[in-house]
Simulated scan of single mutants.
Amino acid sequence: MVERIPMSIGGHKKLKDELKQLEHVERGAVVKAIEVARGHGDLKENAEYHAAKDRQGHVEGRIIELKDKLARAEVIDCTKVNTAKAVFGAVVGLLDLDTDEEVTYKLLGPEEANVKYGSISVLSPIGQSMLGKEEGDDVTVQTPGGTREFEVISISSSTEP
Rank of each mutant, 00 (worst) to 15 (best):
S157P: 01
H12I: 00
H58V: 14
V87R: 03
V103E: 10
K67C: 11
K32C: 11
Q56G: 15
V30L: 09
S154F: 04
I34E: 05
G145M: 08
K32D: 13
L70V: 07
A52I: 10
S158G: 02
E135W: 04
P161T: 00
S156F: 01
Q56C: 14
T147F: 05
E102I: 06
T140E: 15
K16T: 07
E48K: 09
E26C: 06
M1E: 08
L15C: 05
L70C: 07
I76A: 00
I63V: 12
Q128C: 04
M130N: 01
P125K: 13
S154L: 05
R4G: 02
T79L: 02
S156H: 01
E160L: 02
R72H: 13
E160G: 01
D77Y: 08
S154Q: 05
E160S: 00
E151D: 01
E135N: 02
R148M: 12
E102D: 09
P125V: 14
E74D: 15
E60R: 12
G28A: 10
L95C: 08
G28S: 09
E35R: 13
L66R: 06
Q142C: 04
D42C: 03
G93Q: 06
R72T: 09
E35V: 13
L19F: 09
I63Q: 12
D42K: 05
E45S: 03
S156V: 03
L19W: 03
L97H: 13
L108K: 08
D17I: 04
M130P: 00
K53L: 15
I155D: 01
V2P: 11
V141I: 13
E151S: 06
A86K: 03
G39A: 12
R148W: 10
V87D: 01
A47H: 00
G145A: 10
T99D: 15
E60C: 11
I9Y: 05
E18D: 13
K14R: 14
L94M: 06
G61D: 05
P161I: 00
N82M: 03
K116Y: 14
K13S: 13
L131C: 09
G39W: 07
K116E: 15
S154H: 05
G132E: 04
H24V: 15
D54L: 13
H58Q: 15
G132F: 04
I34D: 08
S156P: 01
E26Y: 03
H40S: 09
R72S: 10
V141W: 12
A113I: 06
L22G: 09
D100W: 14
R55Q: 15
K106L: 06
N114T: 09
G11Q: 03
S8R: 01
D98P: 11
V122K: 05
I64T: 11
G146R: 10
K80P: 00
V31K: 15
V139A: 01
G57F: 07
I63F: 06
G93F: 03
R4Y: 07
R38D: 15
